[in-house]
Amino acid sequence: MSGFEPAISNPVEYIQHHLTNLSIGGKPESITDFSVIHVDVLLVSIILAGIFAFFAKKVGDNIDPDNPGPLQNGAEMIVEFVNQQVQDIFPSADKMVGPIAITLFVWIILMNTMDLIPVDLIPGLVAGIYGLFGGDPHHAYFKAVPTTNLDTTFGLALSVFVLIIYYNIKSKGVAGWLKGFFFHPFVAKGTGAKIALAIPNLLMTLIEEIAKPVSLGLRLFGNMFAGELLFLLIALMAFSVWAMPGQVILGSIWAIFHILVITLQAFVFMLLTIVYLSLASQTHDDH
């Protein structure tokens, strides 16, 4: 073939190769290693953000209320859809919630959609380019789906976490927000009971608050990572000409099913963000 042995001959290496990021700073040593930057993740997500921003700018510059073009119609559809969700879940939302929701929705869809590009196409291209410049194609890594990376999903989830804290402080003040940790979810009447319940309340609320970003980040990551892995496993069927039809059929079925996962996960992420921000904006007297 083209100089390097077929990856299929070594399934474990094939999959591991595909799950390795193009990074600056070597392989991450521990579970959190801030000396490493995954260039591929940043590159793809910034390009996708750029595409989104480009079309947004194009639509925004050519707004014609009377005679919307196809692009404006599409944009209006998404804006109206997201705005409807915000209005339904968080009626007292300020001006930032809508843009946050639509950005999460569209950007996550775009990043997830990278999953539908054939698993070997982008890594293959990168390996080819790497080879052209005299590098060893075996060490050319490229992970094209940013949402199969914990950095992306937790980057978004932590941003939402910061926003939750911001909206909490905005609606209740710092004192009010901190007070909420001690008097919920178990509400007591007497002073003694209040003191007794303060510690359990603190633990419960802490878990509740931390669970929000963790579940957001892990849900998206888990779904997309599993999808990507399944695509890799289906791609492994190319070990023999006789298994190729199976690869084509399974790959098609999984890709079609994955379209659902892509939009659903983006929608769920957006919806939960709106719900969390709405909860954060409620004063404790509300519930």
């Binding site: 700073g25 290693d33 490493v36 925004g60 914990l150 937790f154 980057g155 978004l156 941003s159």
Partner: peptide
Amino acid sequence: NITATLIGQMIVFTVLVWFIKGVMW
């Protein structure tokens, strides 16, 4: 693993939200 990419993604997200709000939303 969690790496410095996380910070990059948060920055990209913030900028994107701000941009989309002004330009399209």
